[in-house]
């Protein structure tokens, strides 16, 4: 009897719901391969007007049931079939996912996010312990079911998390400044024969350089905008910025310990 039980291939029961997940509709979407662009390459025929603010989603936008691009639908799509009467007459009908509107609290973003999501995703979010945990899970099935809206939220959450973690400062040397506060040393070396231990990041130094550069350009009869300025110093190293500051007689001792 035991042997029969182990070998039987009958119907198995599970609490998992496969009902409305159409992985095929997500996995088979064709997303055009992006060419690799570099500064200085010939311009392509078309350049979008706006900056790209969100990473490219591997599975692209939905080709069917496009409303799912605007919410957390968990890979659920509209389904089609027949309603069959007692006389076996068939009438076409559709099944929509159970969509609810809900504002969910994001711990990381520290705000309520109004969302359209399916009831099953809402259940998953509560099991995961919050919206952020749902969004930042790494499993490939989760990435597939996030959709473009979920992918965007995931980027916002992860970006803020990374900013707050101060990962980029982890390997930096620290020192104590004149006020007795602990500061990071962003550059330790010599510029034009001056030994420096710089306590400002490259971006902060670029902000200090901007008004000086602007005056310098004005003297030459050019108008420097912030956009032109950022293009001008694209890819410049911290040494380049420091030597430029020194060239414009900026007192580097104010940003050094």
């Amino acid at each position: 009897m035991n042997l029969f039980n182990t070998l039987k291939t009958g119907r198995h029961f599970s609490s998992l719901s496969f009902v409305s997940k159409e992985w095929k509709l997500i996995e088979t979407r064709r997303v055009a391969a992006k060419p690799t662009y570099k500064v200085g390459d010939p311009k392509p025929a078309h350049i979008p007007e706006r900056y790209k603010k969100v990473p490219d989603y591997k599975y692209g936008d939905p080709t069917v049931f496009k409303q799912s691009a605007k919410g957390l639908y968990g890979g659920a799509f509209i389904r089609f079939g027949n309603s069959i009467s007692e006389s076996k007459h068939k009438t076409r009908r559709t099944w929509m996912p159970n969509i609810v509107k809900k504002s969910l609290w994001s711990e990381t973003l520290n705000k309520k996010i109004p969302l359209k999501l399916t009831a099953s995703v809402l259940r998953t979010i509560s099991k995961e312990g919050g919206l952020d945990n749902y969004l930042i899970k790494d499993k490939s099935a989760r990435i597939k079911e996030l959709g473009p809206a979920g992918w965007k939220l995931r980027y916002e959450v992860l970006k803020l998390k990374e900013q707050r973690s101060k990962e980029h400062l982890k390997n930096l040397e620290t020192a104590t400044n004149s006020e007795g506060k602990e500061v990071y040393i962003f550059y330790n070396g010599t510029i034009n024969g001056k030994a420096l231990r710089i306590t400002k990041s490259k971006n902060s130094l670029l902000n200090l350089l901007y008004p000086l550069e602007k005056i310098e350009q004005k003297a030459d009869g050019h108008v420097l905008t912030r956009r032109l300025y950022s293009d001008m110093y694209y890819g410049a190293s911290i040494e380049d910025v420091l030597s430029k500051l020194d060239q414009y007689n900026f007192d580097l001792s104010t940003v050094s310990v």
């Binding site: 662009y37 500064v39 007007e49 790209k52 990473p55 980027y155 992860l158 950022s230």
Partner: peptide, 16 residues
């Protein structure tokens, strides 16, 4: 040629 500003319109940021 592509400027740094153009590059930001053409290339999406990376997911952290």
């Amino acid at each position: 040629t592509i400027t740094p500003a153009d590059l930001r319109k053409l290339v999406a940021p990376d997911m952290p």
